[in-house]
Amino acid sequence: MNGAPKIGIADVWHPRHLYQDVIGNVGQIPQFGTVGVDPELVEKAMIPCWANYMQWQADAINHLIKQEGYEVVFSHMKWNVGVYGNEERQQW
């Protein structure tokens, strides 16, 4: 559904040990995608993928809060309106 980002390797995690910890306790990182602005694809493919990924990220963050004792977590998701600007939304 998108161009294979490097989500399944420890190299993009810091510190790297968090990768194995999160994967071992929360599960593999789910695929997410952007498939254009076709309303049917958005409804049937993109939104369910986003929801699944968002749940995984929430689970991962909650695990790290408990496991690592984090007191503050910043997370940024820019796959919805931020990715699809006004021009695309007007086509829907």
Rank of each mutant, 00 (worst) to 15 (best):
I9K: 02
G85N: 13
W13H: 03
P15K: 07
V72E: 07
R89P: 00
G33Q: 05
W79S: 10
F74C: 11
E71C: 11
G8E: 09
Q20R: 15
G8V: 00
Q20W: 09
V81E: 11
V26L: 03
P15S: 07
I47Q: 06
P15A: 09
D21T: 08
L18W: 15
M46R: 04
R89A: 14
E40A: 12
E68V: 09
I29P: 00
G33H: 01
A45E: 13
V83E: 08
K44I: 05
V83Q: 13
Y19F: 15
P39T: 07
H76N: 13
Q55A: 12
N80I: 05
Y84I: 09
K44G: 03
P48T: 10
F74M: 13
R89S: 08
D21H: 08
P5G: 03
W50R: 12
V37I: 10
P30W: 11
Q57N: 12
P48Q: 12
N62V: 02
N80L: 14
A60D: 01
I7E: 05
G69W: 08
G24T: 05
T34G: 08
H63M: 03
V26H: 05
Q57F: 04
G85I: 08
A58P: 00
F74E: 01
V37F: 07
H76W: 11
H14E: 06
I23A: 11
E68D: 12
G85R: 12
G36L: 12
P30N: 09
Y70Q: 06
R16G: 03
V73R: 10
G27Y: 07
Q28W: 03
Q31T: 04
V81G: 09
P30T: 06
V72A: 10
W79K: 02
N86H: 11
R16L: 04
P15Q: 08
K78E: 13
D21L: 14
E88K: 13
G3I: 08
L64I: 04
P5V: 04
V73F: 10
A58S: 10
S75W: 07
V42S: 04
N80H: 13
Y70N: 06
G85D: 15
K78Q: 12
D11F: 03
A45D: 10
Y70P: 01
V83A: 14
V22C: 01
V81R: 13
E68C: 15
N86W: 05
G69P: 03
K66W: 06
N2Y: 08
